[in-house]
C-alpha cells in the first residue's frame, strides 16, 4: 500500500500543497495533468529524490518521509529513462540485485526471467547507445523491476514511443501489473492513455492561488 498524507512539496516558486491519496497493493494509478504542472515532482517526492516540506509518505503503513531514497524499495522509471551509459543491458538488470547482495545464480536467473518477460533477451550484451526508444524503455523497466519493488513509478513511460510501439508497451505494462502484482503509479499528460490502463485516475490541476497546484478528481476507472 502507498499513501500520501497532506504532503506539501515546494520547488522554487511552485507549490504543491496538501496532496493526499491512497493506493492499495496491486492497483494501477494514473496521475494526469498538463505538461509542467508537477506530476514528476510528486513521483520524485515519493521516491525520495525531492524533499517533502510537510506531511507524510507511507509505504505499507511505514512512514518513509525522511528515509534515504534507496531504502524505499521503489522502482523508478524516469521520463528520459536515464540508462547508465557505461553498463550493458545485462548489467542494468543485475545492478540493483548486486547492491542487495543477491547470489550470482539468483541474479542470473532473475535477469533472464525479466529479459524474457520484456523481450530483451537478445540485447543483454549491448550498451544503451545503440538501443531504440522502445528497447531502452524496456531496459529501464527491467532495471526498475529487477529487485521486486513494492511499487513502480513510471514518468510518462509512453511519451517517446511511436503509435505502434505504444500499444504494445501499454499491453506490457498492464501484464506486468497483473503478473507481478506490483502497485503502479503512471504519470501522463494524456487522458486517453490514463483511462485506457489505470484503475484509479488522479488529476493534477492549477489551484486557486497562482503557483499552487491541487490534486483532484480521484476517479475509479474501468480500464478499457
Amino acid at each position: 500500500m502507498i499513501e500520501l498524507s497532506n504532503v506539501t512539496i515546494r520547488a522554487g516558486e511552485f507549490l504543491l500543497p496538501d496532496v493526499s491519496f491512497q493506493l492499495k497493493s496491486g492497483e494501477y494509478a494514473a496521475i494526469m495533468g498538463r505538461t509542467g504542472i508537477g506530476k514528476t515532482t510528486i513521483l520524485e517526492a515519493i521516491c525520495g529524490l525531492r524533499t517533502v516540506e510537510k506531511g507524510k509518505v507511507l509505504l505499507n503503513d511505514v512512514d518513509v518521509t525522511s528515509w534515504p531514497t534507496g531504502d524505499r524499495n521503489l522502482g523508478y522509471v524516469p521520463q528520459d529513462l536515464t540508462l547508465f551509459p557505461t553498463m550493458t543491458v545485462q548489467e542494468h538488470l543485475t545492478f540493483a540485485m548486486k547492491l542487495r547482495k543477491y547470489k550470482p545464480p539468483a541474479q542470473q536467473a532473475r535477469a533472464e526471467e525479466l529479459a524474457e518477460l520484456l523481450g530483451i533477451s537478445h540485447l543483454l550484451a549491448r550498451k544503451p547507445a545503440g538501443l531504440s526508444g522502445g528497447e531502452a524503455q524496456r531496459v529501464a523497466l527491467g532495471r526498475a523491476l529487477s529487485f521486486r519493488p513494492s511499487c513502480l513509478l513510471l514518468d510518462e513511460p509512453l511519451s517517446a514511443l511511436d503509435a505502434g510501439t505504444r500499444d504494445s508497451a501499454l499491453e506490457l505494462l498492464r501484464s506486468i501489473n497483473k503478473l507481478t502484482g506490483v502497485t503502479v503509479i503512471h504519470v501522463t499528460h494524456n487522458a486517453e492513455e490514463a483511462r485506457a490502463i489505470a484503475n484509479v485516475v488522479l488529476t493534477l490541476e492549477a489551484g486557486d492561488k497562482p503557483g499552487h497546484v491541487k490534486l483532484s478528481n480521484t476517479e475509479a476507472n474501468e480500464p478499457s
Binding site: C47, G48, P68, T69, G70, Y76, T82, F84, T86, L99
Partner: peptide, 27 residues
C-alpha cells in the same frame, strides 16, 4: 555528466558513495 543517472542509481539502492563510484566515475 548528467546527475540524473546518479539519482536513478540511488532509487535502485545505492548510497551516494556507490552512485559516485559505480555511475559517475566510470563516465
Amino acid at each position: 555528466i548528467d546527475p540524473r543517472a546518479e539519482e536513478v542509481a540511488r532509487t535502485l539502492g545505492c548510497h551516494r558513495g556507490q552512485a559516485f563510484l559505480q555511475i559517475a566515475l566510470p563516465q
